[in-house]
Amino acid sequence: MMRSTLTALTITLVASAGAFAGEAVKGDSAEVNGMRMYYEVSGSGDPIVVLHGAYMNIPTMGGIIPALAEHHKVYAIEFQGHGRTEDIDRPVTYPNLASDVAAFMDAVGLEKADVFGYSMGAAAGLRLAIDHPEKVDQLITASVSYDMEGAQPAFLEMIPTMVPEMFIGSPMEDAWKEYAPNPDGFRPFVERMIALEHEPLAWGEEVKALKSPVLIIAGDADMMTLEHLVSMFRLLGGGEPGDMGKPLGASRLAILPATSHTAVIDQVDLLMGFIEPFLKGETPKGMFDQ
């Protein structure tokens, strides 16, 4: 089970790695919470911060970044120990990741921005909206849980079996070393990432209190249950009937059909079909809308 999951993720990373080739981007580093964080800026327009998933980097986010850059100024970062950002002797936790994003925004002069996160990056974005609500305009979360009880049972069963040897010596390590400032630091990095899977996650009351509009995106065969995604949508005020004289809630839910966790991020056209109307505040018109 674990090996097949890693294989699927590795295939996704390798297949996506060339998607950024030829794109005009500006790469730089910023001092963030005791480390040099790598980031890239592309496009123009309203700012949006892009947060990648676990074991990923900017290139492996594939075509979603250049697609967003067609209408927005995109700030894509690489988290602690990922890509070209150095690892430091500090746990990788969602509050720490959110703090890093907030500090990054301060470092580059971003007072407030829209945020798009995938998987681990989506949880970091959700935590950013909870801990630093003044930083987040609109939040897009692709494949996220707000409570570990909402994870698929098969995934919960897998977590206790995770050990560094499942990653060390795999193609994932080779891909990590390609960008890492310290290519010899893979084991401690993996140990931090495994510890992240054991981090308590129960943010229901905090999600319910969010003021930022949230677009929830997930696959119908993702790592969290469909019931959990609906629960999150309801916490954010969604799920009430339209056509009843009340305006729709600001948050939205989109489920991608026939889509596993690692297949979400590469469906760029479908994702953009949800993201752009959300960011613009556009909604489909019903027969009772004037």
Rank of each mutant, 00 (worst) to 15 (best):
E78N: 03
E178N: 04
D222Q: 01
I64E: 02
E149I: 12
A30F: 11
P241F: 00
A154W: 06
E173M: 03
V163F: 14
G121Y: 07
K177G: 05
N182M: 09
P200R: 14
E173R: 12
F167N: 15
L256P: 00
G62W: 11
V268M: 00
E240Q: 15
T262G: 05
L9H: 15
D137C: 06
L236P: 10
N33H: 08
F155A: 04
S143Q: 04
M37A: 15
D269Q: 07
I48Y: 01
A103T: 07
F186V: 03
Y39V: 02
M2I: 11
I265E: 10
M105A: 00
P133I: 01
M272N: 02
I255M: 13
D174N: 10
G242S: 09
D89V: 04
T85P: 08
M232E: 09
L51Q: 10
A69E: 03
T225I: 11
E40G: 03
V136R: 07
I88V: 15
D184S: 14
L210V: 09
M172H: 14
K73D: 13
A54Y: 13
Y39R: 04
G150V: 05
A124D: 12
G281R: 00
G286S: 07
V190N: 14
V41F: 03
H52P: 06
F104Y: 10
V108Y: 06
E86M: 14
D137H: 09
L201R: 15
